[in-house]
Design a protein around this nucleic acid. Structure first.
Ligand SMILES: [Zn+2]
Ligand SMILES: [Zn+2]
Ligand SMILES: [Zn+2]
Ligand SMILES: [Zn+2]
Lengths: 144, 144
DNA sequence: CTTGACCTTGGAGTAGACTCTAAGCTTTAT
DNA sequence: ATAAAGCTTAGAGTCTACTCCAAGGTCAAG
């Protein structure tokens, strides 16, 4: 049995984070001590490890909640349930990468065109581009 | 001279967004009509276009404010001032891409290891990985 | 017995970029 | 004349993932 500080410490996180996860339904301590302190057991520790691993591969807390709900009901769930979540996330991450890649390319083009020296900004190609390019000539940001 | 609705319409944005930009110092209407309505002129229209183009290459509103402060004082600024902002952003965007690429790779490995079929989730390699692998060791269940 | 570390709670603050609401005035169309 | 559309303001709400704060209870050490 660990108290909140011990558990937080073992995982290198803040006690506030643990209370935050609790409030959002991700991790309830399995018991309370007589004095009201949260009491976490081995299973809680493993659940937290699961949460942190899922975070480390990019899942949001909301997505982790879905993953956990499958995990605790494994026996009645199938691979496709799990893989679907992973693949949906893969799509979201890939789309975000694609958007950032467009930004990167546009910024690189902007950067490459500018001398970067003590040249007056009145003729700076970066400012000129931002002043007059047509939106279609630049990669538009996608709106969700 | 345009009223707020017209300007918003011409640029495909919301009037609230225009008021928001104003409150945050990005775009002040050059005048007010007698009835108190905001009156935007051609220069305001161009400044808005600048803002939207900068947004489309990934700049945040705070960064756009910096860009604008250089733009309006072009004569006393130099290329390096401008390029510096672009290059800093390029670094930030590249870092974010790198992080997302790591997520993508981990997710891909997770996805590849799972059959995705009607197989019981009790033996799902994705759940097993999240339950027990160290984040750095995330590997497919089979080796290629 | 007091100090200090650790725990409790509810609630507020942060960042970013809007988006919406309420209450009310102005203009346009019927 | 009246209703719809558009404008005004200040301020609140949204989303994500914490992080911090205040006021106070608990516990081991000196
Ligand atoms: Zn130059
Ligand atoms: Zn330049
Ligand atoms: Zn399977
Ligand atoms: Zn599986």
């Amino acid at each position: 049995m660990f108290r909140i500080g011990e558990l937080a410490n073992r995982h290198g996180i803040n006690t506030d984070t643990l209370r935050f996860y609790e409030k959002h339904g991700l991790l309830q301590p399995s018991a309370r001590q007589d004095n009201g302190y949260r009491a976490y057991n081995q299973a809680d520790d493993q659940r937290l490890a699961f949460i942190l691993r899922a975070k480390s591969v990019g899942f949001s807390l909301g997505e982790i909640a879905e993953l956990l709900s499958i995990e605790v009901d494994k026996a009645n769930r199938v691979c496709s349930d799990v893989k679907e979540l992973v693949d949906e996330k893969l799509v979201k991450v890939s789309e975000k990468i694609a958007e950032l890649e467009r930004f990167r390319q546009s910024l690189q083009i902007l950067s490459d065109g500018c001398c970067g020296g003590p040249h007056s900004a009145e003729h700076c190609t970066i400012l000129q581009a931002l002043e007059s390019f047509e939106p279609d000539d630049m990669q538009p940001s996608y709106s969700k």
